[in-house]
Design a binder for these strands. Structure first.
Lengths: 330, 330
DNA sequence: AATCTTTAAGAGACCGGTCTCTTAAAGAAA
DNA sequence: TTTCTTTAAGAGACCGGTCTCTTAAAGATT
């Protein structure tokens, strides 16, 4: 009897090509089967790789992904989260624009939905987080550069400050970058390199802005012998700018970049990079979220730290002798 | 009276931090404020750039975007569309895996939702489409190579066939690529270059696969003097493979690639590319869709063709004299 | 002051599912 | 055949909005 009726229903359903309305289902069940993701800019290979990791895990777990770009802008981020919450996503993955502004994130928590932080954590927020070992890697990288005789090492980041100048790590609102700068400064202090702070440059928010910063840096009377780029977009712009100035790497300048983007291995010279497990970062964040969504709602928060590693190629070399004694040169 | 009550309501809403449930709203209005996007692989810079164009337009129009990867796999594409339809997206943007399989797209049309095709059209489907002028550009590029004396020009694409060999443009299911190959073959025929078909290689679906194909191609007794890569991922792998074989560009081999990805300008030599308005492609597709969604539901279908242009750099040069007479060399 | 118009507030149905509870029918046991 | 158990089908409420219709109250008109 059950069979007969079922077959009839199925046949009818097929004839009318009936599709259950997931919206209606979501309304009663309270679950939308959707997770919201807020990233800085999907065009950045860093985020598109991470996004692939997220979508792969989500799909396997039966979730669908809504993507929103914040442009690293807090207001856009707030809007995005508000929209996502209104759409009743089951959980969120956010790559915070500024770690200090967490009011809108509290809102997520208050709504009872789980949240996972991607690449940037926040001490103000006790939630699942996936980051890289930024500080340690920055320390290693800086040590390596110093061992090669570099004393004037510029650090370039897209993170901007109110006056577009760097004074203190506390100015930097993006956690991953702040930790890197802290690591860099620590090592400089330990090796008694004075005024390392003055070599940190903020506001490399676009290839054009980066070009201006790098050009100005390299044309100054006292110029850096090495540059560390905080991501591959900055690294690429710095590479182009140094070439435009006819500088030979690594003779005239040592360049290294965070994120082993595709292009870094095919330049001449190929550029020394910090390999970041970007896909895995996204994957891990999605896994944490999916686990919360299917079971232990209220387990202890987990913080995953994925290791980065230095890939030494040919854009980094010994510093010219003339630059080694910092105090004299200044 | 109205004011008093409204104020009271607003105050109460604020106190309870009330957020309208978009799901419930969607159910009655029949509009979810969401558009579904199906791309091959968000990790590919081509798609991530296009996606940025889409999300920017969508956000401005008040829509939210659900992203799904098909991996250029028809079954995954079908699944994705089914899910999207069940979630009651208002419209879809799809980058078709195979132009001949359109049953699942008919399903979209039957559901009454608008659809826009991105980068790949289908003659079977009368819907809004945004593509590039693939055939003409391929013709230009081929002519240029032939003018430089090239007679053996390999064309590499990720599109695969059943037997992993190319026989006929009809084998190629990705419209943009098929049109390019058609343009390439047309020009070869017009200039009486025999057997151009044998230089088309399919199945460059990953960097590894591409490396195998390129290495085999370049180590054969009769090898191509020029390679055209159908996208920047293939172009990069081909660049690496040729370098691994110690070939000097453009002396030993001319290489050019579709899609002006970032890296193409920083290699040595920089590679000659076809500039594709990728962001604009996404933008245009989203605009077409949004227009349908807000007004002329049933206007005539529009096909937007965005122009590509050749950026000549230094990876393409004259063919070695020895390769110019095809018949003798074979 | 009585009537008509305007405007606001309240009540009810609906969207399309899920879930529980009741009722009816079929099959098993006495 | 009667009674008890099992199982299937049907009815109703609910999720949280939108929308329409009714009712009540305020303001305008003569």
């Amino acid at each position: 009897m059950s069979d007969r009726v079922r077959d009839a229903v199925i046949a009818a359903a097929k004839k009318l090509d009936y599709r259950p309305n997931e919206l209606a289902r979501s309304m009663t069940t309270g679950r939308s089967g959707t997770i919201g993701v807020v990233v800085g800019d999907i065009e950045n290979p860093f985020f598109s790789q991470a996004m692939r990791g997220i979508t792969d895990v989500a799909r396997l777990a039966g979730f669908t992904v809504i993507l929103m770009n914040s442009g690293e802008n807090v207001d856009a981020e707030k809007d995005a989260i508000r929209t996502l919450l209104a759409k009743r996503v089951d959980g969120l993955i956010v790559s915070l624009a500024r770690e200090s502004e967490t009011d809108h994130l509290q809102e997520i928590l208050r709504s009872g939905r789980p949240l996972a932080l991607l690449d940037r954590g926040s001490s103000l927020l006790d939630v699942d987080t996936v980051i890289s070992n930024d500080r340690d890697t920055a320390r290693d990288v800086t040590k390596r550069l110093i061992a090669l005789g570099h004393r004037r090492i510029a650090y370039l980041t897209a993170c901007d400050t109110a006056d577009h100048m760097f004074h203190d790590p506390a100015d930097i609102q993006t956690g991953s970058v702040r930790r890197r700068i802290e690591g860099y400064l620590e090592v400089c202090q330990e090796t008694e390199i004075p005024d390392a702070e003055k070599w940190v440059r903020v506001g490399a928010i676009s290839p054009e802005a980066t070009e201006v910063i790098v050009t100005e840096l390299l044309q100054a009377p006292v110029r850096p012998s090495a540059i560390i780029a905080s991501d591959s977009v900055i690294g690429l712009a710095a590479f182009k700018a140094s070439r435009a100035l006819d500088l030979k790497l690594p003779r005239d300048l040592s360049l290294m970049s965070f994120h082993d983007a595709d292009w870094t291995s095919v330049t001449s010279p190929p550029v020394t990079v910090v390999r970041q497990p970007v896909y895995q970062l996204g994957e891990a964040a999605a896994k944490l979220l999916v686990e919360r969504l299917s079971g232990d709602e209220k387990g202890p928060t987990r913080r995953v730290v994925l290791p980065m590693s230095l890939i030494e190629r040919d854009s980094v070399g010994p510093a010219p002798m003339s630059t080694r004694n910092t105090s004299a040169a200044m």
